[in-house]
Design a protein around this nucleic acid. Sequence first.
DNA 1: GACGCGTTGGTCCC
DNA 2: GGGACCAACGCGTC
Length: 577
Amino acid sequence: MKTGHVSNPVVLYWHRTDLRLHDSPALHAALALKPLVFIPVWTWDPHYVYKARVGPNRWKFLLECQSQLSDAYENLNSKQKLWVKDTDAYAQDRDTAVIAMAEKAGVQVIIRMGRTLFDPDELIQKNNGKPTMSITQVEKAAVKINNGNPDKPIDPPSSIPDPWDEERMDLSSLEHDSIDNQPDLNAEHRTQKDEQYSNIMGPKNDFAVPWDDIGIDLSQAATPHRGGEAEALRVLGECIKNEEYIAQFEKPQTSPAAFEPQSTTLLSPHLHFGSLSVRKFWWDVHAVMENQRKAKKPVASVPTNLSGQLLFRDMYFCAQASLGHRFARTHGNEIVRFIDWHLQSSPPDKNGSVDGSYEVDSQEAEEWFQRWKEGRTGFPWIDALMRQLRQEGWIHHLGRHSVACFLTRGGCYVSWERGAEVFEELLIDHETACNIGNWQWLSCTAFYAMFYRCYSPISFGKKWDPEGNLIRRYCPELAKFDKKHIYEPWKAPIADQKKWGCRVTGDGTSSSRSGDTDNTYPKPMFNFDERRRICLDAMKHAFSFSLHGDDAKVKDGSWKKEFRASESSRPTKRQKT
DNA sequence: GACGCGTTGGTCCC
DNA sequence: GGGACCAACGCGTC
């Protein structure tokens, strides 16, 4: 197409982490340039397109648009480009490449940060160039930025020019070819289903959200959670109305077993997809806390309160921004403690690339991992949570703690890297920084070290849900078990198992059932008390080496010899039960 | 170097 | 339901 008559076209590259009209610094800056042509382009990432196609109904705002960037610069003749900054490791690579491409084409790149409370790179700088490893460090660094206050959210624009508005633009004089000509940025991804963004879809819907191509049929949705800016603002508004809930919110006091309604705000997916601004969330909460404080009512403090939860998110983003790709793996990662987990990721090759494979050093651990992943460990609390995760894409934070501890240091002794991969695929609120960071936390490889605090798959659930309602919901085969046996169904007498219509047998695979009509629930895959002792002992042993992911002994594999030599000399605590 | 504390443990006992 | 104890890491502060 030719753009000879267009004096100031602006291309706004808008990706999934900034998909809102309110508090969108990049959109705001784009409009301030007063473009004659305003071209929002949904960028796409193979990573997220992959997620969109494999999950149990992915989130509404997974957008895909083919943006052939170098061609676009040449053809659109744009001299100004806006970019929404993203510090995820793969996004750092992408942004570096795109910015270089733009500069080569003589295009001015304007970058705005909109994803976190504070710019992760600025947090690193204020934290003496280091990744933030504790909430105290985040708070101190934030005070140096703006006395601890993030930027105020920006109001949504009152109007947005239509992209390629033919009437307003008089495109007849533009002598442009049809926008369908090459490079066609959106050809395969056009639909009119998204009403929320109808004002920026363009008169011919050339810039619409590509629902059909994403492969999402909302009528078939397994998850009860819904996306979109309107929904995000509605939910936030509802939460904010309950001032006591907001002001007294303490994460450790919210139940991981609650569903319909859940005990937390459910706003995390909106933060991930950019349909809610984290700064609006923070300032709205802040206002409520101030009100309550003035009214002399109790107000929870950082880090357990809501603001604290958002600060943890910034902590992980900062740590990730600092380490790049190293953050998400053990090898070469200086912040993670090295532990001799089963099923560790294969080390990078000579070029530093990883192929995503892992070493199956133990068939037993591999089977435990598969059973955990599929929700058939034989521990109903764990299985209910894993099935809720698979069906709905969301579980409560403490539920995540429970299943993560069970897979790693408190049960299977499987590498946190395996668990993080499963969460990445299944969570609708997955953010690499938070997911990886929390797995490191729970497995006691970074951020946290008190490995002797171990979650029991029986006691912890019982504390929150003595009736076992979460289990009855997500493991319906156990629905008729009495509360005495619901967390340990294998202890129920056979007569009762028959009476309650479910036998505890096999490993949860269909082949393990004796007949098609049998209703069964698997036997526990190991003795938990025994495994807890073995894991605790192994953690103590691993900690005694003080190895980290970037240690030479980790790189060359010589840790194995040392661990084994020391292993043979230490007393075993294995105990028969 | 000592000491207290750390977003969210479990168990036992009162 | 509340407190002591379990077994005991790393960080921040004094």
